[in-house]
């Protein structure tokens, strides 16, 4: 058995295996740390910064930082929650997130974290950027208005040879996700569904079916994001 490390999150004594990231160790100890770009099974990227925690007084991303013996981690202090809220609010104003007609509404991680932190309106001015919708692919629709560039689709959706079906196109603030026409030609319905599900927002939408799950039965309609991880379930904000 690998070495066991002792550490605390908000004063709660936790244990981790050597090499385990703070995020994975927290999940194993039934403590929820919110994240948008991270996905179990994928190499952590640390790009969305939502999983910021305070370790011995320093802000670090929980998804990329391995646990060390005796770490004292803050996950729910006021300053961390304010940082997380400001990141979510920046994402909400940076794109065009029209929840009322979005197919992903109710199943969207960005929206769910905003609900969890009770954000009624962003503190920043809306940018209303000019972005496109692309429907050229046979199975998938891309809505760049909603993309948060987390790279989950690029890292997670691969063909049988391990090649990424998605890729970044352009550079800097013009960067967008792109679907490889050749590799996606043989995409099955299951893969298309997987691509839609892997997207934390509504940037990748499977064609020909929509709004299948009625309001009230969607993923985050009744319980906040992280309820499946946390032992003590939050019923009210």
């Amino acid at each position: 058995m690998s070495k066991v490390l002792n550490f605390t999150i908000d004063g709660v004594i936790c244990m981790a295996e050597k090499g385990q990231t703070i995020l994975n160790a927290a999940t194993a100890n039934k403590i929820y740390i919110p994240t948008l770009c991270n996905l179990p099974g994928l190499k952590p990227r640390g790009s969305c910064r939502v999983c910021n925690v305070k370790v011995n007084g320093k802000f670090l991303t929980a998804c990329t930082t391995p646990v060390a013996e005796g770490m004292e981690i803050e996950n729910n202090s006021e300053d961390i929650i304010d940082i997380r809220k400001s990141i979510i609010e920046l994402l909400l104003v940076e794109g065009n997130h029209y929840c009322p007609y979005c197919e992903k509404s109710g199943n969207c991680d960005l929206q769910a974290i905003a609900y969890k932190y009770n954000i009624p309106a962003p503190r920043f001015p809306y940018q209303f950027p000019d972005r496109d919708i692309e429907a050229t692919n046979g199975k998938l629709l891309k809505d760049h208005n909603r993309c948060i560039l987390c790279k989950r689709c690029i890292r997670g959706i691969k063909d049988e040879d391990g090649k990424s079906i998605f890729a970044f196109k352009r550079r800097g603030h013009k960067v967008i996700i792109n679907i490889d026409t050749r590799l996606s030609a043989n995409m099955t319905d299951e893969m298309a569904q997987e691509a839609m599900d892997i997207c934390p927002v509504g940037a990748i939408i499977k064609k020909e079916i929509g709004f299948k799950v009625p309001i009230g039965e969607r993923k985050y309609d009744k319980e906040p994001i992280g309820s499946d991880i946390e032992e003590i379930k939050a019923t009210t904000i």
């Binding site: 929840c99 009322p100 979005c102 509404s105 109710g106 929206q111 905003a114 609900y115 009770n118 309001i215 309609d221 009744k222 319980e223 906040p224 939050a234 019923t235 009210t236 904000i237």
Partner: peptide, 11 residues
């Protein structure tokens, strides 16, 4: 004002 989680929605 206490809003229950189920009532706080953007859609």
């Amino acid at each position: 004002l206490k809003v229950p989680y189920e009532a706080f929605k953007y859609d």
